[in-house]
Amino acid sequence: MREGIYDVYEVFVQHNKTDHHVHVGSVLAPSPDLALHVARENFLRRDRAVSIWVVRREDIHATSYQDPDFFARETDKSYREVSGYTENGRLWRMFKQRMMNIEEVVQDMRGETR
């Protein structure tokens, strides 16, 4: 513990075991142990929780808003987006229109023409 120096700690709370930890705010404290106590008093006075995390703000590594290339996609995966589903429906309808019925399959296997 550094004497007389307070750090900013970001506080994350998990309300039950199936929930994710959620950021609820920040506290000033001289140590992680005291940050836990201060966070409990500030953010869990009326709420119940099963877990609380405190992380020194200096220990958080984040992307820069000035670096949009970090999130650029290497390959086109637009088919995974919701907007691609209408195109999939159109392609499926085209496929079904060209689909052969069982008699046409048998004729094709025998080499017969339609």
Rank of each mutant, 00 (worst) to 15 (best):
M1Q: 08
M1C: 09
E3S: 14
G4C: 08
Y6R: 08
Y6N: 12
V8M: 08
E10H: 12
E10K: 10
V11G: 01
V13N: 01
K17P: 01
D19A: 10
H20E: 13
H21A: 06
V22F: 08
V22N: 04
H23E: 05
V24E: 03
S26H: 07
S26D: 10
P32R: 02
P32I: 04
P32M: 04
V38H: 06
V38G: 03
V38T: 15
A39R: 02
A39N: 03
A39T: 06
E41M: 11
E41T: 13
R45L: 12
R45H: 15
D47I: 06
R48Y: 04
R48H: 09
A49K: 01
S51W: 00
W53P: 00
V55S: 02
D59N: 10
D59L: 03
D59C: 05
I60Y: 01
I60F: 02
A62P: 00
Y65V: 07
Q66R: 09
Q66M: 09
Q66L: 11
Q66P: 00
Q66W: 01
P68T: 01
D69L: 07
D69G: 03
F70K: 00
F71S: 12
E74A: 11
T75V: 11
T75E: 12
S78C: 09
Y79Q: 05
R80V: 06
R80Y: 13
E81M: 11
E81K: 13
S83A: 15
G84D: 14
Y85I: 15
E87P: 00
M94H: 11
K96C: 13
R98T: 12
R98M: 12
M100E: 10
N101Q: 07
I102N: 12
I102V: 15
E104V: 03
E104L: 05
V105M: 13
V105I: 15
V106R: 14
V106E: 13
Q107A: 11
D108T: 11
M109S: 10
M109W: 10
G111A: 06
G111H: 05
E112L: 12
E112Y: 08
E112G: 03
T113R: 06
R114L: 15
